[in-house]
Design a protein around this nucleic acid. Structure first.
Lengths: 229, 229
DNA sequence: CGACAACCGTAACGCATATTAACGTAAAGG
DNA sequence: CCTTTACGTTAATATGCGTTACGGTTGTCG
């Protein structure tokens, strides 16, 4: 029966699927060629016909996972009409996906050592930024939130922000908005990491109220939500 | 020469020291009994005289590392007189230690899978909280920062905050302050994780300006710093 | 001085993993 | 129909790790 699936689609798909199953079940450290072969009912040398090794599989797996995450966010965004709800939906989708896919999240955001190539991080952070970024820009144009004027930013901060703005090719937005964007990403990232990795310990039975409180603050800063307090 | 050191102090110290060296150099995944034995010029079975296995070593190592981190923060706090500078110093020390001890930081804050016992996380997060917590309380009593009044907090959030307040035994502070404290920790954690794990990619040559900007915001919210903009 | 304990090395076993090379088979294409 | 190509297995090599059992050395203490 596995052979049936194998015929259409080829082993490559099966291998990646199996690899993902293993990562989800036992973590990326348990992902070995032998384990994949066992689960798939094949022998490990066969895998070399399709991948150069376990590192290669992890690389592709990471790319797929990022696509999944980005798609989940885009779907959530598409369901909303206005910028504020779009931003809220994207952020909630990010959290929800992360909580529901802890192992995959850990593969991306955990110890960098899991990913063989550090450039990958640079790449997919960009892909994430492409979801939030345009929405933040839209909020700025439509709702004119209060941002720090350029001349009030410390010189070293200006330098860093300018470099980042150039990197993402958003020449038409003020540095203050870039700062707000980074603040948002930083806070969302920290919040979700704390929840997924359990670094709050057993302090909370439910992280959603904390998350929603943070989200309300971010939306307010972007001019698309009321002052939460 | 190693034998000389070994005589005073015993192998236990040497083993832990060597284990830490390995973690720093090659990451926790490279920490094996065989590697320790090789580096130390002994044989791996000898280690069983002192530890029950690699998990046991990691456990003790983590405890030591937390002590290091907390001590670094306490030292920085002790050098300051007033609450505001104390808070700033503690937070800067946290970042500086983390950046200078990336491998150790990763052992604590990375993928939970590195630590054999999840209760450890709960424990040492508490130890960290004991550095910041009292300072936040002091800032609240001395400078009366604006915090969200209890009745304006959403009911689910109130429930979670009350549970956390009870857990840390700070019955005399309002829930709004607990929320501020958690916000601070969350932001500091996220910022430092982003820097240490490289999830900003190559976007920044220097993370300090971003960190200082965040810190200024936090201090302002605690009533011990000017409005940063 | 002799017994005892602490200490560490040797030997051995069992296990998992990656990776290469050679081999056979079955489908595809002329 | 024959050849070629794709594909997966078998075999073999090499490495590394954890763990237990046993034995010998060394220093200490009665």
């Amino acid at each position: 029966m596995a052979a049936v699936e194998r015929k259409r689609g080829g082993l490559a798909r099966d291998i990646k699927g199996c690899a993902r199953r293993i990562v989800v079940a036992d973590g990326v450290s348990s992902l070995t060629l032998a384990a994949i072969a066992r689960d798939l009912g094949i022998t490990s040398p066969a895998i070399y016909r399709y991948y150069d090794g376990v590192g290669d599989i992890v690389r592709e797996l990471a790319a797929d996972i990022v696509t999944d995450l980005v798609n989940a966010m885009r779907r959530a965004v598409a369901e909303q009409r206005d910028t504020g709800p779009k931003l809220a939906a994207a952020t909630r989708a990010f959290r929800q996906w992360s909580v529901e896919h802890r192992a995959e999240f850990a593969l991306l955001f955990g110890n960098g050592s899991a990913l063989p190539d550090p450039d990958i991080a640079t790449d997919w952070v960009r892909r994430l930024a492409q979801v939030w970024g345009p929405l933040v820009g839209q909020a700025w144009r439509d709702h004119a939130p209060r941002i720090t004027p350029e001349e009030r930013l410390a010189a070293p901060l200006r330098t860093q922000l300018a470099g980042y703005r150039e990197l993402i090719g958003a020449d038409d937005v003020p540095l203050g908005l870039v700062l707000v964007f980074l603040d948002c990403w930083r806070q969302i990232y920290g919040m979700v990491c704390l929840e997924v990795f359990g670094h709050f310990g057993a302090a909370f039975t439910d992280h959603e109220p904390l998350f929603e409180n943070m989200l309300a603050g971010l939306l307010h800063r972007l001019g698309v939500g009321p002052d939460p307090g």
